[in-house]
Design a protein around this nucleic acid. Structure first.
Lengths: 144, 144
DNA sequence: AATAAATAGTGGACTTTGTCCACCATTTAT
DNA sequence: ATAAATGGTGGACAAAGTCCACTATTTATT
């Protein structure tokens, strides 16, 4: 392994840098009617097709009661539907409704555009900084 | 510019991936007596040596009233001191006290160790995933 | 010089996000 | 048959952060 100090410093610098970028994206996304966690929940249901609450919970690293409430809102808005699992009467299976899929796709598209705009507007200086950070980290990982 | 769809998708995939990693780090750091924002505030004061509240605010993208409260706590704990600015009577200059520097260094070291541990324990699969994400993004930026 | 507008910061009230805990129902293990 | 684990809900609460109104200066405008 190469010099640990440098590697760690580099990763922390990248974290600060990238946390900032993600923060900006997240902030922009907040105009929507749905919170970040709600959108993320829709995403998890979307890719899982038909999932249990506990699976979403694990994927998102959130508390089950919080998830329960997120799901409640999404259900109230008619974006998801719950059906009792046939194998396990404790569990309910969650899936997107037609409306849910539509809303998800809309939000997703908005997010794509956001990112696209970010890429287009990223000043060259920031781009170079990002690339340099990434190079260092790749270097660290490949030599560890 | 290359295929936009792919580029945007790739960046979003990386965001999800890296948000997860950062989340883990942040969660681990929470054992400390100080919150993430408080530590970040100490960091900003540390690198700025002697700064105004408004500078920290801009760097951290947080509300001024929230920062005011963060500073109040740090001051109460004797980690920072405020002195009225001589050029501008509206402003106060903020700097770390001896104790503040000591605490910051301790927290900083803990954070370093955290990252170090993360690197050491990152499964090869995750490492490769990270490197692949980064390669794609660098590729995107360099061809845009 | 007088006043309008901008800048720096504080504190009250509030919202959002998320956790902890107690609880019910069902299922699996002993 | 019963203990323990799993899946989920809801109450109470904590943490993080925003919005707004206010004070005190400072800078710009007439």
């Amino acid at each position: 392994m190469r010099d640990t100090k440098t590697a760690v410093q580099e990763i922390r610098a990248f974290n600060r840098f990238y946390t900032d970028i993600i923060g900006l994206l997240d902030a922009h996304l907040l105009d929507s009617e749905y919170s970040l966690s709600e959108v993320r929940t829709l995403y998890e249901i979307h890719i899982g097709k038909s999932v249990q609450a506990s699976q979403i919970m694990t994927a998102m690293h959130i508390d089950k009661s919080y998830l329960s409430r997120l799901l409640k809102k999404l259900e109230k808005d008619g974006l998801i539907c719950k059906t009792p699992s046939e194998e396990d009467a404790r569990a309910t299976l969650i899936s997107l409704t037609g409306k849910g899929l539509k809303v998800f796709k809309t939000l997703n598209k908005a997010s794509d555009e956001q990112i696209n705009e970010l890429i287009s507007n990223l000043p060259v200086r920031k781009q170079e900084e990002l690339v340099n950070h990434m190079k260092s980290i790749m270097d660290i990982l490949q030599h560890k």
